[in-house]
Computed example of a mutant assay.
Amino acid sequence: MPSTDTPSKVGPDTRAPRIQPFSRGAVAALPLCVAVVPWGLLTGSLAIESGLSPVQGQAMSLLVFAGAAQLVGMGLIKAGAGLGSILLTTFFISSRHLLYSMIYRQHLARQPKRWRLALGFLLTDELFALTSQPAPGAGGFNRWYAFGVGFTFYLVWNITTFFGLIAGRMIPDLNTLGLDFAIAATFIAIVVPMVKNLAVLATVATAAVLAVLCEVQQIEGGIIIAALGAMTVGFLTTGKTS
């Protein structure tokens, strides 16, 4: 008698629409991850110097996941600042994410809540830079591509923080080795590819010149002055140049 077992039908691989864009996102993030490595090491070592335990230092990277805010926050902790000062300062440092979220809204408004929460948590300068434009080959915003970018940064950030925590206990004054240049290198790598017209070039140049002048003249609030000046120049030149 012929066997009654019939081979199961093999449908299309439903994983492909997820794995392929996720992998492209992870690969796209790798070049910027190189610059993030020394930044993460510095963050881990500063956590030890500021008096945090290794568990607290790692938890900060796991839960906060914001390089600049973490560095400033740990500096304030080391200086003995109060909780209110720490929260207010880190709020202003991270306020640029409000602008990112306004742009991201068009992509995430119709996404399920779990995706809005996940990508909102993973939103960084690097993720915004790599996903504010359509994903390569996707024809538009792809949430799996964005998740691949964001999760890769999250993973690298926490791994390097872990090794920074170890190095902070073994190598004294790790912050004197110039690892903080990685912060500038990361933002240079993010900004340069986005300079595609004269208006953006004018904005970037204004921010750079004002930031340097304020630093040389030791003017307090130089970052805010540079940011406001650059935004003003960008607003005045947008639409008038191509």
Rank of each mutant, 00 (worst) to 15 (best):
M231L: 14
G75V: 11
C214R: 00
S94M: 08
L83M: 13
S101P: 02
S95A: 15
Q218V: 13
F91W: 11
I19L: 15
A35M: 12
T131N: 09
P172V: 05
A167H: 05
T160V: 09
M74R: 04
I103M: 08
N175Q: 14
L130N: 03
S95R: 02
T203V: 10
A211T: 13
D173R: 12
A207V: 11
R96P: 03
T124V: 07
G73Y: 08
P7H: 14
Q56I: 09
F163N: 02
T206F: 07
A66W: 09
S8V: 15
T186I: 06
F187E: 01
P172A: 08
F162L: 15
L30W: 14
T152N: 04
R96C: 03
A207W: 09
L130M: 06
V10G: 03
A29T: 11
A185P: 01
L155H: 06
S101F: 08
G120E: 06
G40L: 09
P112R: 11
G25M: 13
F163M: 03
L210F: 12
M74H: 04
F22K: 10
G80T: 07
G168V: 07
T186A: 00
P2E: 14
A199D: 08
A146T: 09
I223G: 00
A81W: 07
Q106K: 15
G150H: 05
C33W: 11
Q20S: 13
M60H: 08
T89N: 02
N175R: 14
G178C: 05
L46W: 10
M74K: 05
A69Q: 10
V37A: 09
A66Y: 08
A16E: 15
C214W: 03
S53P: 06
G11P: 01
L99Q: 02
V192M: 10
G164V: 03
K240W: 13
V156F: 09
C33G: 12
Q70F: 05
V216Q: 12
V64F: 07
A184D: 00
F147I: 05
F65C: 02
L174V: 06
G80K: 09
V36A: 13
R15Y: 14
A184G: 00
L63M: 15
G84W: 11
F153E: 13
S101H: 04
L198M: 12
M60F: 12
T160Q: 09
Q58I: 09
W39M: 10
G239C: 04
I188Y: 02
V72L: 13
F187L: 03
L87H: 04
L228S: 01
M74S: 03
